[in-house]
Nucleic acid binder design. Structure first.
Lengths: 236, 236
DNA sequence: AAGTGGTCTAGACCACTAT
DNA sequence: TAGTGGTCTAGACCACTTT
């Protein structure tokens, strides 16, 4: 029922205004209540309308906070424009610093695996990645990760071990001297920093790391509000 | 039916593995097919599972690309920790430069409204905003925007005029000298740049602007994969 | 042919809001 | 009390994949 989306985009239903009741919509389109419900639900989680039980369905006005950015877009940018190589710069077993130990919830000084990688596209460095892993002899996690040389493998990352969840944070940052040198940028250049912590099935952290991305090559973009879907006059 | 989410998080259903068929789930939980369908749909758009018609439902392995970041989090950060004032630095009518004209799809030299604002939290500048608007005497848009002095009003922004859609882009950038001075940071400091273009009902651009945010104060974070919802043993 | 997900119907009932 | 959104049932039928 993109008809509804279209009507909102074209201003037939104005922000703040009320949509027809679900029973009216059912009659207008000659569908079952369940079908109307699903259509309205789609509009709700697109953020186009809000509903209040006992009152009705209303068109939301544009709110910047609704915007969602998909990381997919960034990883697509990594892959676009040429073959991407993953180059392993370092793989060593080192004792955890206090900081690493705190995040991974292990004892300070416990053995961890430290990995540094550089992603290159057509020989040009585009992303620098550092990662700390809990060292566990009983699991083949490390071996699996060492052999990650494809971009696909790195993004699915710890997938080889089948990890179920993780936390991600994006910040704007300035490149340090080593990162800048590796990425062939002036020190202090702005960059995206994507920090990640992956957890095991028991909910305990297993991996902590950062992707540093040249800011001139990557961005996050999105669309808020109606349109972009339909300005025509089709269904739903 | 968070039971399913919980089972995935706890590893009962492993990444790559197959879930029971929808008919099995219907019997196990004694619900109607439609209910199972909805539960599975929720898992699908959380990115936890994929389905293939004629084959079955499978647990997805973790993919960084699934991650979505909500701008709401940033605007919440703006508002948290104290009262936010919106200070209007400049409001002038100027001819459009070639660049502005191209984005707003008007003639170069056409009259535009140029606004500069500073967001302050507890007297401390946190966000610098610049915006170009099409000047249209027939609409009270400008007057409405000039009177925006609350954070809420700025975020809903052009809402006063009831605009239906917009495009947003986030980039990491380095502060220029004027922005740095206003934000009381060293020039070249890293910052988030949130660029926006808002459109009218006819789909034509109306406004183009940028929010520059101190990177030390703001971040985007999110969670991917299972858990965070339920590690217990409830429904859905 | 059998089994899978995907969509839909035509109602029933509930929770809430307005009057 | 009447009208609203919200949830659910118990089937039917379709599209697709596997054997």
């Amino acid at each position: 029922m993109n008809t509804l989306t279209s009507r909102i985009a074209r201003g037939v239903y104005r922000p703040g205004g009320q949509l027809p009741t679900e029973r009216q919509l059912r009659d207008e389109f000659s569908v079952s209540p369940m079908t109307v419900r699903r259509a309205v639900n789609i509009l709700i989680d697109r953020g186009l309308v809000t509903t209040t039980r006992g009152r009705g369905t209303f068109v939301r006005s544009l709110d910047l906070g609704e915007a969602v950015f998909r990381l997919q877009e960034v990883t697509d940018q990594w892959a676009s424009g040429g073959e991407v190589d993953v180059q392993l710069l370092e793989a060593s077993i080192i004792p955890a610093t206090a900081e690493v130990a705190a995040v991974l919830k292990i004892a300070a000084g416990a053995r961890t695996v430290y990995l540094r990688r550089l992603l290159l596209r057509e020989e040009v460095p585009i992303v620098y990645h550092r990662e700390h892993l809990i060292y566990d002899e009983t699991r083949p996690l490390v071996e699996a990760l060492l052999q990650v040389t494809s971009l696909e493998g790195l993004l699915r990352g710890t997938e080889s071990a089948g990890l179920p969840s993780g936390d991600l944070t994006i910040q704007a940052t300035a490149l340090g001297s080593r990162a800048a040198e590796l990425l062939r940028m002036p020190p202090g250049s702005p960059a995206f920093c994507l920090e990640h912590v992956f957890n095991d099935f028991d909910g305990k952290p297993v991996s902590w790391g950062w992707f540093l991305c040249r800011s001139d090559l990557f961005r996050l973009s999105t669309h808020v509000g109606a349109d972009r879907y339909a300005r025509g006059h089709e269904e739903a």
